[in-house]
Amino acid sequence: MSALLSARGLELRFGRIAALDGVDLDIWPGEVVAIVGESGSGKTTLLRVLSGLVPPDAGGVIFDGQDVLGMNEAARRNLMRTQWGFVHQNPRDGLRMGVSAGGNIGERLMATGARHYGNIRAAAADWLRRVEIDPDRLDALPRTFSGGMQQRLQIARTLVTHPRLVFMDEPTGGLDVSVQARLLDLIRALVAELGLSVLLVTHDIAAARLLAHRILVMRQGQVVEQGLTDRVLDDPQHPYTQLLVTSVLAA
């Protein structure tokens, strides 16, 4: 078995600021990896570089044997709508707000060739159920949904084509604490059920502990510590990780 996504020596500077400073990363099939660190530590930049949205100054990214940085736009988009998924912090960035819930979920199916309305609709209804939204809301517009529902709809829309790797950028970011817990649990269950590989960017240590098998701690563009989630959080070695962990109220 080999890593599903593999990055080596990623470097990216914005002027004098090193957003990525020699980052290596592997994600294995079925593995959930969290990248934690404070705002501006380079987490989101790393996500954008790994998914080919931003070219790095140096380094390489391999997905399933393919060179992500060298591939053309067509191949990358094809990856994006088949093997990859992207869950944004703000559901408005990941949903079409003027399109019904069913249309939002069906889009990836249609983009990959589904042409049977009834089947698309049935799949969309099934996915609404799986993310705990009443299938009666199939034809409702996302703007009539609460924030937590919008986020769950975004997850349904992303997972409907069974991607192999899902990038999540602060998926519980703007939500109430009670809503966060439900969403995290839903993500945890779906990830386990579908055997997804996930790269989760978050500054929420509790979310990382619940979801991730492995954690990378980033600071100023560098991975300062990484390893098994419970070991990094319970026995942090780097001063920055110790600061990060002790800054969290025990739950």
């Binding site: 069906g106 889009e107 249609m110 983009a111 042409r115 309305y117 698309i120 199939l138």
Partner: peptide, 14 residues
């Protein structure tokens, strides 16, 4: 990349 056009037709039927 024409999935979006089918989304429009899907919405019509829905």
């Amino acid at each position: 990349d024409y999935g979006l056009m089918h989304v429009k037709l899907y919405e019509d039927i829905a």
